[in-house]
């Protein structure tokens, strides 16, 4: 480890000490099924994002995925794509998102994970980005357009700053599953269905088979996302995985109710969490 990197880490730890220490991602799966909630930062404003995160935390969410909006979110369906457009129209920037995360981290220990695309991270500067993640209390990152083969772009820097790079496994991963799972840290994001994000009435993938392939090579917890919206779906998924990820259904509530979403989000998260038995 070079000296600049060391100095950065020491500095980060000093700042960290002034905040609430974030819980580790793995802890949320220790004795329960985890409910993971996604929202897009800056939709409809960063102040509201802060309020929504704290509200969902209080309502029982175990981890919050915070989307850094991107102009061209190619893995997203229309609901989250529109949220990205709203956030960018509201002039949401990566710097302002880090500030918002710092305010959240001053109030809660809940693990926070970014979801964004490779370009916003790369152009911000990989070292600068992950250093800011550590300083502000981000635990992990999900980058849909960064496959296993290209992880070298960020992995060592993210690890040096104690940020888990979350592994995505898809229904089409097949012979790649064990290669992907072997290196996974934090949790494994198991994509339930083909296609982009969005609410689905039915999930047809044979998740049990994929889960069993993963379990054969790793203890890393598995959370399932893409298409899950109802408590019934959550109950079914929780029977075979360690956690459930909900994005579009939450973003749809925010799209519909805007600044007044808080009570609806609280009610929704409570119901979903209660379904994970």
């Amino acid at each position: 480890m070079n000296n600049t990197l060391k100095a950065n880490i020491i500095e980060a730890n000093i700042i960290e000490a002034n905040k609430i220490k974030a819980n580790k991602i793995s802890e949320i799966f220790a004795d329960q099924k985890a409910f993971i909630a996604f929202l897009t930062a800056g939709d409809p404003s960063l102040d509201k994002t802060e309020e929504f995160i704290l509200a969902m935390d209080a309502a029982g969410a175990d981890l919050i995925e915070i989307g850094i909006p991107f102009s061209d979110p190619i893995a997203e369906g229309p609901v989250i794509e529109a949220a990205n457009e709203r956030a960018l129209s509201a002039s949401t920037t990566t710097d302002a998102i880090f500030d918002m995360v710092a305010r959240v981290r001053a109030q809660t220990a809940i693990p926070l994970v970014f979801l964004t695309y490779m370009n916003p991270v790369f152009v911000y500067g990989v070292e600068r980005f992950f250093s800011a993640c550590q300083k502000n209390g981000i635990n992990g990152i999900i980058i849909p357009d960064l496959p296993f083969e290209e992880k070298g772009e960020i992995l060592s820097v993210a690890q040096a700053h104690d940020v888990d790079v979350i592994t995505l496994i898809a229904p089409t991963s097949q012979d790649r599953i064990q290669m992907l799972a072997r290196d996974a840290t934090g949790f494994i994001y198991l994509v339930s269905s083909l296609g982009v994000t969005g609410v689905r009435s039915e999930i047809k993938t044979d998740l049990a088979a994929i889960v069993s392939d993963i379990r054969a090579v790793t203890q890393t917890p598995i959370a399932v996302g893409f298409g899950i919206a109802t408590p019934e779906q959550a109950t079914t998924i929780a029977k075979l995985a360690d956690g459930v990820i909900v994005g579009s259904a939450i973003v749809r509530i925010i799209a519909e109710h805007g600044a007044a979403s808080t009570p609806i989000l609280i009610d929704y998260v409570r119901k979903m969490k209660a379904a994970l038995v």
Partner: peptide
Amino acid sequence: GQYTPETLMNA
């Protein structure tokens, strides 16, 4: 490079 979602990697 190959900066593409996992869903498409096998394809």
